[in-house]
Design a binder for these strands. Structure first.
Lengths: 123, 123
DNA sequence: CGGAATCCGACCCGATACTG
DNA sequence: CAGTATCGGGTCGGATTCCG
């Protein structure tokens, strides 16, 4: 039995990656860090309405996957910087394509929703 | 204040699209339907371990967003076919890029995880 | 075959409080 | 500033049952 990545078979490694991309917060962090290195509270401010618990948890997951790097400086108070790794940068590029699709087609999607909610069947 | 799509501001329409892409099941359905039109139970069989409830729910959402179309035939028993709409097809292409990234880099991710779990800091 | 409806446990996530 | 720990409600989603 060869090792073929199969996103349709549960507990396949590829599915794991898909799941992380599926995470709303993780995607937003990737997009932000693609622009520049940021500190914890700076990320918190930019991602409107994320709780510090979720941000912390998201950053830890992304670091574990090797997508972002964490650097702490022994200042007072502490300074911590987050940045994309090379691996994370390649993913961020792919994700950017998704957000571009979203911005380009949001209008069509919303119109489809209105039609559907009015009881009309299809386009 | 102009209407600029801002995925970082909660209750932005773009965020809605991002959230749907974030849905694990929705992504799998899109990938499958990109290949061919499929019936309900056929989808069910191919997506290992999806429940009937989630499949039904996922299909309804995708149809509402105008990404897939549903066609019912008055046979006995009933036959229902699901297919991508043109809009859904454009999204499926973008999503395919993500799964390709996943398959290509799953090895690096898993290695990063092992390093992280051993307590090593970064690459 | 293609669903809808109900029940119910699991875990996600926010709010809060505390630490170095 | 950059987190961790704990609690609790709300939602997600699986199992089951029933219907056209």
């Amino acid at each position: 039995m060869l090792h073929r990545p199969d996103p349709f078979n549960a507990r396949c490694p590829t599915r794991q990656v898909l799941d992380r991309i599926g995470d709303k917060w993780a995607v937003l962090v990737l997009i932000l860090l693609e622009q520049e290195t940021l500190r914890f509270n700076e990320l918190r401010r930019r991602i409107d309405s994320i709780s510090q618990k979720m941000l912390s948890q998201t950053l830890k997951s992304l670091e574990r996957d090797g997508l972002i790097s964490r650097r702490a400086f022994a200042t007072v108070p502490v300074t911590v910087e987050y940045a994309l790794t090379p691996l994370g940068r390649t993913l961020a590029g792919t994700v950017a394509a998704l957000t571009q699709w979203a911005e380009a087609h949001i209008g069509e999607v919303e119109e489809a929703q209105r039609r559907y909610d009015r009881g009309e069947v299809a386009a």
